[in-house]
Design a protein around this nucleic acid. Structure first.
Length: 777
RNA sequence: GGGCGAUUAGGCUAGUGGCAAACCACCUCGUUUACACCGAGGAUUCAGGAGUUCGAUCCUCUUAUCGCCCACCA
């Protein structure tokens, strides 16, 4: 009984081998070109999910190819573990609320928890065979990252790109922090659209709203200047119901006549346009919301927004102030981290100026090569739609502190000295150089993207100057084009006045029965279970099944296909080496014609796969190699040379053995980036003693010549197929003996291959006749 | 409403200006000197319309459906 391939044991062993032998260790001393990767640092949140497995596999295909092709890759690994996502995770697993804890206490808990969970988290990446140099490691909260993030702030501040401003900003009442435009999601939510009775000179002025709780925040009423219904009251005052104060009625074109009643209520602050209008008209705002999303006014004080809305509607109704109500659904902006509806609150925040540089960002985008190209448009689309400068401050605890002090007396801003970073300014006061008073340290921290957007600079610092900026490649998924990718471009432009990387490859998503996977829907697949059940190689094989940027449906049978491929590779390799027992690893004096043709075909495959990989088309390469291996190598070539190997000797046999050895090795190398474990196992078992490279993954990518003609072999296969067809029709065994009749032309073309044709067709004789025919004995 | 993408066999996906493809599933057969599996063969397919072309699944326009991103939040 043949040995069965056991991926569970093999993959574990191979993984340890790579680790112990430091196969993927970056060698700064090695000369020549380095292919450098700005690896995405996954957000530390429990476990790797299938989307990670999908996109990290895809980037690893490319990197593994480059390692073999270019000889040296710089492939670091980091974890993104600060800021809101990390806080939320810690709050969840430790069942705490950061806002209820002392800052130092919470930070300590975060750091301690991270230490506990990080190794297990990274283990998933290693299990998947992602070939990073895990010793080139960073965390976005470690000393070096904090230092570089603060340094980035100091530099940009000095260059005038950073400002602090009190401004109605996007605010999440759940997380109690300001957020950035890029952190907004849309949600379709049901809402009650109520028409409310305002008064103007004792006459009703009807205004429709979904936010009655903002009535006390109303500071003005807009009507369209051309709206005949309201022309006559422009300049007069309207009385706000329930709260009984007067606001001006102003003509403004932003009021659309066909929406609601055509009268628009301006509140501080209902949305961005309210904020702009109030700012433009220099009206003083009426702030009715607290940071925690409760109201601060009258009898509604302390109520949450939704409760206050209910209560106010009730009170309006009781006072007969509602004329109409209908249920609608409308899209609202929510916070992508927690799903809470976003509010606008005036707070002091730090911003990086980006709105005035849109053209430059578009230009930078043009200088990067996008794979696939259409992802570039998404970037342009985002840049064109920017409406806010980048808010980089968050009112939270666990993040990189903002290295500034502010003197309350003279409003002087004191930035940290570059020598003292990383620093937490909230821990002590600093003397104001102007007035000598003690200035208070900033308590806000940076948005996590402030740090991850300098990932190229962070990993550059790990390379001791061996790497050049820009990097060769940034791989990532498409959901963070507007954040990670965009912000990295911003930083590189502002700091180094260049693009961060020459290329970017963007992965798609994983779906299940056509639907996007998400925890809330509960339709997720655990990559850990898939690896356990089907092997990491099979998971990667599946991930190689679609192109860059394309979504892929998860189907278990694809995993089974990968597993079958492993079995086939394993068995074919064993079979080949069974037949190489007496082979002296020498070249034959003369190659048999068919062996030569087979090697030419192999050459063409190498050429095509190399071109595909260079073009980031790993799926094309995988498909071609898979087909070649299964059909050309196993089903045809092995069958063709079997008899020659079994029963002949001398140079004829050596010729076949030579081609088998070379063929299998090349196939293994071509598929090695996709399935690193099994190819390594076979290499170690059979090839290592001859090839000498410590690992197949640091061996040289097969070389190739120009495209070779193989028509004769194709003709040979055609004839073979036809013979098999005849046997199938006749319901005969493939081993049934025949007499084969070929037309003169065909027979002549195949004259050097007739012996092989006889062998593989089990033909007693090949005769020349009028046309193709198979005769059974 | 704007942008982008997709639509290929029963399912999931490749692909090409010139015979439409792999895998799984299905049907028929064969297999014991690699492969409790493997092999051989078979049936079935380019969303609809118009245009460019000798020729379109591929290029252009258009319609429809689906997905993603953005905008809309009175």
């Amino acid at each position: 009984m043949a040995e069965v391939y056991n991926p569970k044991i093999v993959e574990e062993r191979i993984k340890k081998f790579w680790e112990n032998e430091h196969i993927y260790k970056f060698d700064p001393k090695k000369s020549g070109k380095v292919f450098s990767i700005d690896t995405p640092p996954p957000t530390l949140s429990g476990k790797m999910h299938i989307g990670h497995a999908y996109s990290y596999s895809q980037q690893d295909f490319i990197v593994r190819f480059r390692r073999m092709f270019d000889g040296n890759v710089f492939y670091p690994f980091g974890t993104d573990d600060n800021g809101l996502p990390t806080e939320r995770m810690i709050e969840k697993i430790k069942n705490v609320k950061s806002k209820n804890m002392k800052r130092e206490e919470f930070i300590e808990l975060c750091l301690k928890t991270l230490k506990e969970i990080t190794p297990d988290f990274i283990a998933d990446w290693k299990n998947l065979g992602v070939s990073c140099d895990y010793e080139l490691y960073y965390s976005t909260i470690d000393d070096n990252s904090r230092k570089l993030a603060q340094k980035s702030f100091l530099e940009l501040y000095k260059k005038g790109f950073i400002y602090k401003k009190a401004f109605p900003t996007l605010w999440c009442p759940e997380c109690q922090t300001s957020v950035a435009q890029a952190e907004l999601d849309d949600k379709e939510l049901p809402s009650l659209f109520s028409t409310v009775r305002f008064k103007c000179d004792e006459k009703d002025l009807l205004i429709a709203t979904t936010r009655p709780e903002l009535l006390p925040a109303c500071v003005a009423v807009f009507v369209h200047p051309n709206d005949k219904r309201y022309n006559n009251i422009i300049g007069e005052k309207a009385q706000v119901p329930l709260f009984n104060y007067k606001v001006p009625i102003i003509a403004d074109e932003s009021a659309q006549m066909d929406k609601g009643t055509g009268v628009l209520m301006i509140c501080s602050y209902g949305d961005k346009y309210d904020a702009e209008a109030i700012n433009k008209l220099k009206i003083s705002p009426r702030i009715v919301l607290n940071y925690d999303g409760t109201l601060n006014i009258g009898k509604y004080k302390g109520m949450k927004i939704k409760d206050a809305r209910k209560k106010i509607l009730e009170d309006l109704k009781n006072a007969g102030l509602i004329t109409e109500q209908k249920q609608i659904t409308h899209a609202v902006n929510t916070h992508d981290k927690c799903g809470t509806e976003i509010e606008f609150l005036p707070t002091e925040q730090w911003f990086i100026r980006i709105l005035d540089k849109k053209k430059d960002f578009l230009k930078q985008g043009n200088n990067i090569k996008w794979h696939p190209e259409f992802m570039h448009k998404r970037y342009d689309n985002w840049v064109n739609g920017l409406e806010w400068d980048w808010n980089i401050s968050r009112d939270r605890h666990f993040g990189v502190p903002i290295p500034v002090w502010e003197c309350k007396k003279c409003n002087e801003i004191i930035i940290a000295n570059e020598k003292e970073i990383p620093i937490d300014p909230s821990e002590f006061k600093k003397k104001c150089p102007k007035c000598g008073q003690l200035a208070k340290g900033e308590e806000k921290v940076f948005d996590t993207w402030m740090t991850s957007s300098i990932s190229p600079q962070i990993v550059y610092s790990l390379s001791n100057g061996r790497i050049k900026l820009p990097f060769s490649l940034r791989p990532q998924a498409h959901d963070i084009i507007r954040t990670w990718l965009f912000y990295t471009v911003v930083k590189s432009l502002y700091h180094e006045n260049q693009i961060p990387w020459e290329n970017t490859v963007i992965s798609g998503f994983v779906t299940l029965s056509g639907e996007k996977m998400s925890k809330s829907k509960g339709n997720t697949v655990s990559p850990q279970e898939v690896m356990e059940k089907h092997s990491s190689d099979a998971l990667r094989f599946w991930a190689a099944g679609s192109k860059l940027g394309e979504d892929l449906d998860y189907q278990e049978k694809d995993l089974i296909a990968g597993k079958k491929f492993e079995t086939k590779l394993f068995n074919a390799s064993n079979f080949v080496f069974m037949n190489l027992a007496d082979y002296k690893y020498e070249k034959p004096k003369k190659l048999e014609k068919i062996d030569e043709l087979f090697l030419k075909k192999l050459n063409n495959l190498v050429k095509s796969c190399t071109e595909s990989f260079l073009n980031y088309e790993y799926s094309r390469s995988k498909l071609e190699t898979e087909k070649f291996f299964w059909q050309m190598f196993c089903d045809n070539y092995l069958e063709i040379v079997k008899k020659r190997i079994y029963s002949s000797g001398g140079d004829k046999k050596i010729s076949a053995q030579f081609a088998l050895y070379a063929g299998l090795l090349v196939i293994l190398k071509l598929i090695a980036p996709i399935m690193p474990f099994i190819t390594e196992e076979i290499y170690q078992r059979h090839f290592k003693k001859i090839e000498k490279d410590k690992s197949i993954h640091i061996s040289k990518w097969p070389s190739f010549n120009k495209e070779e003609r193989t028509d004769i072999l194709d003709l040979f296969i055609d004839v073979l197929t036809k013979v098999r067809q005849e046997k199938s029709i006749a319901k005969k065994s493939m081993k049934a003996e025949i007499v084969l009749i070929l037309d003169k032309d065909t027979k002549n073309k195949l004259k050097d291959l007739l012996e092989d044709l006889k062998d593989v067709c089990c033909a007693k004789e090949i005769k020349e006749g009028k046309e193709f025919k198979v005769e059974f004995a």
